[in-house]
Write a protein that binds this DNA or RNA. Structure first.
Length: 354
DNA sequence: AAGTCGGGGAA
DNA sequence: TTCCCAGACTT
């Protein structure tokens, strides 16, 4: 019943400048869901190919529910935040089980699904069903904090409540989907994080931040990610053109992805240090059957909150033994179907393309 | 409330 | 380097 003037401006802008994206102007909640999960903390340019390949292989809820998690992770390989893929798969099975494979229409039901939080539930409900829920993502925080000059930290519960209330107040309830798309697209294209072109902004006469020269100070974030270093000593064991792999199963980075046997420590080892490690001795009690190359491959893998220093040792052995049989044995050429981290992928690319 | 989870692109 | 991206979950 009430259309806020700012929403009108944003929607007018949107109709002119919106990008043509494959998940836009579709009403299938499944497709919208997949796109929303892929785009969490991920740029459109990075997620585009993943989206197209994913929905080609898994075109609907049931095809995803029927798949093995391993294959779903393989389709996610390289995209990061793999809990998204695990939860996506889990939620597909929840939908198959609890809703007969039909994506739920009720907001509270959508919110219960694994991997769907406040933002994604609002996005699906408004895009697919036109329900009046306001989205608040990184774009919305930026637009609202600047236009209204709000310096409450966006990563504090207090700030999040404040922005959520404001977003709900501005929402065009009759056109919730378009309104939500408009404000996010506006944040992504016009009200960008660094050096926005405020001279051509349709809200330049209404923007508090522009008026007070604080565009570059908003939004406010109070937490800074602390970067920690980790040291991975990988064992690339070769035995008759086969190697050994393990699945990372603990609550840690790359959960349920495969990798070479690993000794994590507070440093990278030399070959001499490596063979003195208890874990290594347990694996190879008899070092006479081993050929450990003095050449190894070092990588510095940079993540948002981690610097991972990785060293891959090349170990050749003539005979197998019972100690490292606990690892899955696989033909090196057959690793292709297993989901692996970007780091392991880069190592494999390096040794097979030289 | 704080910590954790990936990877890449832009400035 | 630093920041941030259509965030969610665990502790």
């Amino acid at each position: 019943m009430s259309l806020h003037p700012y929403s009108q401006i944003l929607q007018n802008w949107y109709h002119i400048y919106k990008r043509d994206l494959p998940w836009r102007d579709v009403s299938d909640p499944y497709l919208i869901w997949i796109s929303e999960i892929i785009l969490q903390q991920t740029r459109v340019a990075q997620g585009m190919d993943y989206y197209l390949r994913f929905v080609t292989r898994f075109p609907n809820v049931l095809s995803l529910a029927k798949a093995e998690e391993q294959e779903v992770l393989k389709y996610w390989q390289g995209l990061g935040y793999y809990s998204r893929a695990r939860n996506l798969h889990k939620a597909a099975r929840q939908i198959a089980e609890n809703y007969g494979g039909q994506f739920p229409h009720v907001h509270t039901d959508i919110l219960k699904l694994s991997g769907i939080g406040i933002y994604t539930a609002a996005a699906i409900a408004s895009f697919a069903y036109g329900q009046p829920y306001a989205v608040v993502d990184g774009n919305v925080y930026r637009v609202l904090s600047r236009v209204f000059g709000i310096d409450s930290p966006i990563d504090s519960p207090r700030g999040q409540k404040e922005f959520a209330a404001l977003a709900a107040e501005l929402l065009d309830s009759e056109n919730a989907g378009t309104h939500n798309q408009a404000i996010m697209e506006f944040g992504a294209l016009q009200c960008v994080p660094v050096n926005p072109d405020c001279g051509i902004c349709p809200l330049k006469d209404n923007c508090v931040a522009l008026k007070t020269a604080s565009v570059d100070k908003l939004p406010v974030k109070e937490r800074k990610t602390k970067i920690k270093a980790r040291y991975f000593n990988y064992l690339f064991i070769k035995h008759e053109n086969q190697t050994y792999l393990q699945k990372r199963e603990s609550q840690d980075i790359w959960k349920n992805l495969y990798e070479f046997p690993l000794i994590e420590s507070d440093r990278l080892f030399t070959v001499d240090q490596l063979i003195e490690q208890d874990e290594f001795k347990t694996l190879f009690p008899d070092t006479t059957a081993l050929k450990i190359s003095s050449i190894y491959y070092d990588f510095k893998h940079i993540l948002t909150h981690r610097h991972i220093f990785a060293r891959f040792f090349m170990i050749e052995t003539d005979k197998t033994n019972s100690h490292y049989k606990k690892f899955g044995k696989t033909l090196i050429d057959n690793m292709d179907h297993l989901p692996i981290s970007r780091l392991t992928e880069l190592f494999l690319e390096k040794i097979f393309t030289r």
